[in-house]
Design a protein around this nucleic acid. Structure first.
Lengths: 206, 206
DNA sequence: CCCGGACGTGTTCATCTGTACACCTATGAA
DNA sequence: TTCATAGGTGTACAGATGAACACGTCCGGG
């Protein structure tokens, strides 16, 4: 089988990629050996041979530390790097952070934006937008632009940040949660829209 | 000076990054030596020493091919390319296509997978999974692996493809929509799981 | 003129690293 | 039982690789 790795093979593969991500260089056979407390580098070699045969890994023969992901065959579109800021409560509002936790990369076509568009991402906490199919833990993509009614926005309302639907009533803007258990938010002093939601990314825990 | 590289040093640095991009692994001293037609690896070493001293390069001492960009400011993670196939009905099942419509690129960390993992994407049609916060038009990421109970799966049931939750009853697997208006699906002849959902991407129409 | 920095040559050495072989254990299918 | 597969041990070897030293050239500044 091509796609079916054994438990041990998956552990080895995970370690290789973890090392690649963490220190930028693939581990040598003996580093893998040490990590799994094996007594011989040969055991490692056979795992690598198996992984290569199954197409889960690519090697540059004879070269040191030349363990790579298998060849991406398709041409990649234009990419954008989206800074992911901490969490934004979809429940009650809270203060906004400044430093991105990490960066997320995705091609512009899939996000439905033009290259150069400013995009940032926030992770949702709480269930107040569940009626819009936005769950706790989801990452929402936002772009700073003036909101239109019914847009979902990240708003700074009275100094606190929150994710809600942007609506008008009697000519006045207000924010509504997509969950009947949360009340409408009427800005007491000011309503600053930080961004309009343009997309969403969800990871299902494995 | 820290930031001012000599011509030669810049050439070496460019070659290192070019090699990194092209084959995924940094060159060894002797590969650099060969590229510049030098007669000794020692000349290369002094260039690397100079580059390191000037902060233009980072090395993991003693390790082979451990030439890295200086402490990454916004280092893009490892990318994966996901083929996006046509639509999959979350309502009634339909036949499965073969050719990908387009390819979607995203970094592996954000998807929560390791590079090399087989992933494909399908676009959802219908509202039968709305209880799992999956909407019409959403793109779901799937990986082929044996499903566990309560996984959301793309299944080939009696020759038709559909997205449903995978469950067991009396030891027998069956599929359930996350929408009370749809009945459970009990496989008449065979139940082939094409993939398990690992993530979701939504584009909000602008 | 002398000096230091950048750059290059030949050579040697100690590790690092991948590869190979012979042999062992456990498990599951035929 | 036999066989294949996955996984492991211990040892050995060869080539890849980084590091080091002594000795050059060229060039610009004091």
């Amino acid at each position: 089988m091509k796609g079916t790795l054994t438990d041990r093979q998956r552990q080895v593969l995970d370690f290789i990629y973890a090392t690649l991500e963490k220190q930028g260089v693939a581990p040598s056979l003996r580093e893998i050996q040490a990590h799994f407390k094996l007594a011989s580098p040969f055991g490692v070699k056979r795992h690598l041979d198996a992984l290569t045969a199954k197409g889960a890994l690519r090697r540059l023969e004879g070269k040191a530390r030349a363990l790579l992901p298998p060849l991406p065959s398709i041409r990649r579109g234009l990419m954008t790097d989206v800074p992911l800021f901490g969490t934004i409560p979809a429940g009650s509002p809270s203060a906004q952070e400044q430093e991105p936790d990490r960066t997320l990369s995705i091609d512009t076509t899939s996000l439905g934006i033009h290259p150069g568009t400013t995009v940032y991402a926030l992770q949702v906490r709480g269930d107040s937008m569940i009626g819009a199919s936005i769950l706790d833990g989801d990452v929402v993509f936002l772009t700073p632009r003036p909101p239109r009614p019914r847009d979902i926005v990240a708003a700074l309302i009275d100094g606190e940040s929150t994710l809600k639907r942007f609506l008008h009533r009697d000519g006045l803007p207000f924010l509504r949660a997509e969950n009947p258990r949360y009340p409408d938010l009427l800005p007491a002093t000011e309503l600053v829209i930080q961004g309009v939601m343009i997309g969403l990314l969800r990871r299902v825990p494995q």
